[in-house]
Design a binder for these strands. Structure first.
Length: 821
RNA sequence: GCGGGCGUGGUGGAAUGGUAGACACGCCGGCCUUAGGAGCCGGUGCCCUCACAGGCGUGGAGGUUCGAGUCCUCUCGCCCGCACCA
């Protein structure tokens, strides 16, 4: 017998060469458009070389892409690089190496690994966001947003990262620290560029209903958008003849307001206190509040502080005078930065009132009615009291709308919806990003760069170190330009864009990647969008996914595409850990896919990462597990090669013998299971297990008298089913078994119904719900026969002896259960 | 505090309300081999037993059901998200 040795290092490059030579994964230009499928994994940020998380991500996507192709779809499966960003720039600051050089090196390493993994990518659509060919269109989109009034510049209190020396979007501040640097973020008053994502708050929320995403991701987006229904109410300050708006979700408690609070950052605070004895105290408090870090500020366990401003406002519902305090438990960036305080029914206001000995007025009665004392603060519902004759006794939830209506009629307030979502701060005072295509002219003001002049090319600089303003400011030749409007001397905007802008539209560019005349052609983008299946990590649940949705909606409103959601289906994969911990260089627990592939081959690695467990779950890396997978792939190939070499090439017999039939049934069972597991629910681990079962059934000991034609068919099926995970070994095995036939061109197998039903079943016999025996029974036996068979099973009979059978449950094809007394 | 998820053998994990532990790792035994970190065959939840037969078992306590890992109530533990959001 010949020596059949599985050698992935010979097999894998050989087939990769065929696919590359034939451009197998390039999307065919012609073909039916109703079977298109756009399968996309989040594009990587190229740094160093890819890690096992990338391997998992692209293996999932590749399995889906292969499956869709073989089920008759024309599949778009592209790749690109999110190549602008801080890590490359920080590396440049340290070493002086241009970020482009380190980025290009990383990209080369990613390309090399993706090819080595055998990921089926249409490389003709490859893109890199840091190239002028790409960012030209990023700038074009910026101008479109500017024209539409969705990009604007304003002065605002913004998050400043003192380590990276740049501003950050709200989404990039986690627990008061910069997402990248981990530095405590400071609040600074700066003029910055924003995208008006808040215009889309409602749609971003509502349209979550239209997409198939994991519910926890939807929940996170809902929380982030933070919609709350309530009312805006005007409070007048008679002394200054001014008026302040508050947002409240509890207008039903308006009668219980006993004081009024403003955030220290509120622009009117200084003016309010001016000329009162409190002026100095307020100024001191505000200054001290501003230097405190935002993390500590956000701690609700911290004792509340504040000072009286010396002024009062009038409660619009009853004319009572309420003292105005300034206190840092009120946040400027939520609502209006001012609140009415109802200590009896809000625990925060209660804590503040108690500390500063402010009056507390109960306006909602507890269960015992108005005369019964309740523990304050009372946060539950109940009828109104101490309010007005009109509302007293009304359940507070009903009174809520009535009070808003009443205020609205008097012009003192109105029902509103408030969102937690803030506009997206997009300018960055950093070098390695997309230049903002705006020119500042002393006479014309802000002038957009004309489309014909795009791209505004990022100039080279010698010093990448941020100095509180963009390093681009030092490129004086580049900065000084002429105004496109009046032709006079003018200066370029030196801030660059947040790199999340780059990745908010790349999925559109893939559809028409080589278009030099436009970002994309609407007809083409509409053919592919939305992405049918998007795959990536949960860490992007808010940032990238929210921004991409916003871009899609804004661009759709401009008529540039039809889809209103970018990603129809989202799959979020779990992390791969090592020894229970996140992999990191400092812990020294990094698993290198490159090293693993060099040792075991790509097929083993790919199949292993999907066999580790449900792909959405975190999973711990096991070196023994990889070896086990290596044994399986090797056994599959070896068995195939042996059968191809030793078994006569016979066709499937029309009437297989008993062993043949058993194997044939197992094969069709596997087809059915793998198809459902990949196509229906992303249960790759059980799909792989099903192929293992099929192969186990085909092991020499179990093969028995099965006909060679059956064995060849079953082995071909095993290869065919495992192909989406291990494309090289299975393609090779299939070709050996089938006279060189190309597996990637074969239609996905279909399970034949006649082999899915057995003619005999194992009948489980229970007495009182406990299994007492098993008998084989004809699959088509009727209930009475099944009951009789079960009753005669010796052990069942023993358990029925001397008992009275009161009920018999028969589940056809499964079990019989006797209920006895 | 609010919202979501998860608790199953030594390990990763399987189980449309119907045989708990598929498949794999690990371990044990055997075959083959000069050799094995190769290959092949078999065993492997726990207790009791020569064996048969039994008993126990899906974090814990109840409940619904002929039957519960699965559904309901309470509870404990871990993980994630949000959080002074008015």
């Amino acid at each position: 017998m010949a020596d059949y040795r599985y050698d992935p290092h010979e097999i894998e490059p050989r087939w990769q060469q065929v696919w590359e030579d034939e451009q197998t994964w390039v999307v065919p230009e012609d073909g039916p458009t109703d079977r298109d499928a756009y399968v996309l994994e989040m594009l990587p940020y190229p740094s160093g070389e890819p890690h096992v998380g990338h391997l998992k991500n692209y293996t999932i996507g590749d399995a889906v892409a292969h499956f869709r192709r073989r089920t008759g779809h024309r599949v778009l499966h592209p790749m690109g690089y999110d190549s602008f960003g801080l890590p490359a720039e920080n590396h440049a600051i340290k070493t002086g190496q241009h970020p482009r050089e380190s980025t290009d090196a990383a990209i080369a390493s990613f390309q090399e690994q993706f090819r080595r993994w055998g990921v089926s990518i249409d490389w003709t659509r490859e893109l890199s966001t840091c190239t002028p060919e790409y960012y030209r269109w990023t700038q074009w989109i910026f101008l479109k947003l500017y024209e539409a009034g969705l990009a604007y510049r304003k002065e605002a209190a913004v998050n400043w990262d003192p380590v990276d020396e740049t501003v950050l979007a709200n989404e990039q501040v986690i627990d008061g620290r910069g997402e990248r640097s981990g530095a405590l973020v400071e609040i600074r008053q700066l003029t910055q560029w924003f995208f008006r994502i808040t215009d889309y708050a409602e749609q971003l929320l509502d349209d979550l209903e239209t997409i198939e995403w994991p519910s926890h991701v939807k929940t996170m987006q809902r929380n982030w958008i933070g919609r709350s229904r309530g009312a805006e109410v005007q409070f007048r300050c008679e002394e200054l003849d001014t008026s302040y708006t508050v947002f409240t979700t509890r207008p039903d408690t308006l009668f219980g307001a006993t004081f009024f609070v403003m955030a220290p950052e509120h622009p009117d605070v200084a003016e309010l206190a001016k000329g009162t004895p409190q002026e100095q105290a307020v100024a001191d408090y505000v200054r001290q509040a501003m230097v405190g870090d935002t993390k500590e500020r956000g701690d609700d366990a911290r004792e509340k502080t504040g000072v009286f401003t010396g002024r009062h406002v009038v409660n619009p519902v009853n004319g009572e005078l309420l003292p105005i305090y300034v206190a840092d438990y009120v946040l400027m960036d939520y609502g209006t930065g001012a609140i009415m305080a109802v200590p009896a029914h809000d625990d925060r206001d209660f804590a503040f009132a108690t500390k500063y000995e402010l009056p507390i007025k109960q306006v909602i009665a507890g269960e015992g009615g108005p005369s019964q004392p309740v523990e304050l603060p009372y946060l539950s519902d109940g009828p109104l009291m101490n309010s007005s004759p009109e509302f007293d006794g009304t359940p507070n939830r009903e009174a809520l709308d009535a009070i808003v209506d009443w205020l609205d009629r008097d012009g003192k307030g109105k029902a509103t919806v408030n969102y937690r979502l803030r506009d997206w701060l997009v300018s960055r005072q950093r070098y390695w990003g997309c230049p903002i295509p705006i020119i500042h002219c002393p006479s014309c003001g802000m002038v957009p760069v004309p489309e014909a002049d795009l791209p505004v090319v990022l100039p080279d600089v010698t010093d990448y170190k941020p100095k509180g303003k963009s390093p681009l400011a030092a490129a004086t030749d580049w900065v000084h330009t002429s105004c496109p409007s009046c032709g006079g001397a003018a200066e370029r905007e030196t801030d660059t864009m947040d790199t999340f802008v780059d990745s908010s539209w790349y999925f559109l560019r893939y559809t028409d990647a080589q278009n030099t005349e436009a970002a994309w052609d609407k007809k083409i983008v509409d053919r592919w969008m939305p992405v049918d299946q998007y795959i990536g990590g949960v860490e992007h649940a808010i940032l990238h996914l929210l921004y991409a949705r916003f871009f899609t909606k804004a661009l759709a409103d401009m008529g540039l595409l039809t889809a209103r959601e970018p990603f129809a289906n989202l799959f979020t994969q779990g992390m791969i850990t090592k020894d229970g911990a996140k992999m990191s260089k400092s812990k020294g627990n990094v698993v290198s896919p490159r090293v693993m592939v060099e040792r075991f081959g790509a097929d083993t690695l790919r199949t292993y990462v999907l066999f580790m467990g449900p792909p959405e779950q975190d999973a711990d890396w096991s070196d023994e597990g990889v070896e086990g997978m290596s044994r399986f792939i090797s056994r599959l190939w070896r068995t195939s090669a042996e059968a191809a070499g030793e078994l006569p090439a016979e066709a499937l017999p029309a009437e297989p013998n008993a062993d043949g039939l058993r194997i044939l049934r197992k094969a069709h069972w596997a087809i059915d299971k793998v198809t459902a597991d990949i196509g229906g629910r992303f249960s790759f681990n059980t799909a792989i297990a099903a192929v293992m079962e099929l192969l186990n059934e085909l092991s020499a000991a179990k093969r028995g008298e099965a006909e060679p034609g059956v064995v060849r068919f079953a082995l071909s099926t095993a290869n065919s089913l495992l192909y989406p995970f291990a494309p090289h070994a299975t393609t090779d095995g299939y070709a050996l078994l089938n006279d060189g036939a190309r597996l990637w061109e074969q239609l996905w197998p279909e399970a034949e119904a006649r082999y899915l039903v057995a003619d005999e079943i194992e009948l489980v016999c229970q007495v009182m719900g406990k299994v007492r025996g098993r008998v084989t029974a004809p699959a088509d036996a009727d209930n009475a026969t099944l009951e009789e068979l079960a009753r005669n099973e010796p052990n069942v009979a023993a358990h029925l002896d001397g008992k009275q059978v009161v009920k018999v449950i028969v589940v056809p094809g499964k079990l019989v259960n006797f209920v006895v007394r």
